[in-house]
């Protein structure tokens, strides 16, 4: 592992991949990607639904994305960036410190677990975030038991509703708005399917300990369930900033910059961030 690079990219999801490719093809050779997981691809690897590019599912999309990925770009997988320091260096989980001139932060997004929502009651097993369950099912062959309740009818909520239906579970989706809020493509996947949609309400209380027995809604109804998923939005994953403002030598990209609902815009932003980095590199202090 070299100790310094002109550009360090944290996160090997779609945004990091796209940025790295663009930099490399523009002749910028002093770059590296650090990825926490064992392989590149990020969230794409857990998406078994179609809807990426021309009707591909997430994993196929990742495969095409990586097909022309320059093999000489150093990628350190199963390696996590633990801390960033103001002298433009990063501490890795393997103890190495890497110095760089500019940083692309492509760490993706995080979900909001039930613990941080204003939901009272118990904290039983059986409550998950939607993306977490998606990863469990699609990457680890986990088979959840229903009936299931999903809080939130945004894209991820609807995608998970579809997946759980495919697995034969009974699914209820609870949404505070009066309609499903996800993209048309994700709503369309559910038309004609036997799903219980409860608009205009939310979950107030979780019941059951140590295992989940159900949820109480704001209209007083009790919905029995064994599986509960929160799908109430995503937040850019910026824990490495430790609450500080983004300095001029860090450029966020992909979901770490803002939440994207389409892969095309993530790819585009990865590339445009790379172009920006190239223009800043002349002026950035040398190491």
């Amino acid at each position: 592992m070299k100790e310094q690079y002109d550009v360090l990219i944290i996160g090997g999801g779609a945004a990091g991949i796209s940025a790295a490719k663009t930099l490399w093809l523009s002749g910028c050779r002093s770059i590296a990607i650090i990825e926490h997981k064992p392989s590149l691809g990020g969230i794409l690897l857990q998406c078994a639904h179609t809807g990426f590019g021309a009707g591909l599912d997430g994993r196929d999309y990742a495969e095409t994305l990586l097909m022309d990925f320059p093999k000489d770009i150093p990628c350190f997988c199963s390696t996590t960036v633990i801390r960033l320091f103001p002298d433009r260096s990063a501490l890795l989980s393997n103890g190495h410190i890497i110095r760089f001139r500019l940083l692309i932060l492509a760490t993706g997004c995080r979900e909001i677990p039930f613990g941080s929502l204003p939901v009272t009651g118990t904290r039983p097993s059986g409550a998950f975030t939607a993306g977490q369950m998606q990863e469990m099912i699609n990457c680890h062959h986990y088979l959840p038991e229903g009936p299931a309740v999903i809080l939130g009818s945004g894209d991820i909520g609807l995608i998970m509703a579809w997946q759980l239906l495919e697995l034969g579970l009974k699914v209820t989706v609870v949404e505070k708005e009066s309609h499903m809020t996800g993209l048309p493509v994700n709503r369309a996947r559910l038309t004609g399917r036997d799903i219980c949609f409860l608009p205009g309400t939310t979950i107030l209380e979780i019941k059951g300990m140590p295992s989940l027995s159900g949820v109480t809604l704001s209209d007083g109804r009790f919905i029995p369930c064994r599986l509960l998923l929160s799908a109430v939005g995503l937040l850019p994953q910026r824990e490495l900033l430790e609450g500080r403002k983004i300095p001029d030598w860090i450029l966020p990209a992909g979901n770490c910059s803002h939440i994207h609902s389409r892969i095309e815009s993530v790819i585009k932003e990865g590339a445009s961030t790379a172009v920006k980095v190239l223009s800043l590199l002349d002026r950035a202090p040398s190491i």
Binding site: R110, E111, P113, F114, G115, S116, F128, T129, G131, Q132, E135, M136, H140, Y142, E239
Partner: peptide, 14 residues
Amino acid sequence: GTCQGSRCRYEIEH
């Protein structure tokens, strides 16, 4: 932490 296990729980269960 912040994610309340949503990123690590499965690996740990494994």
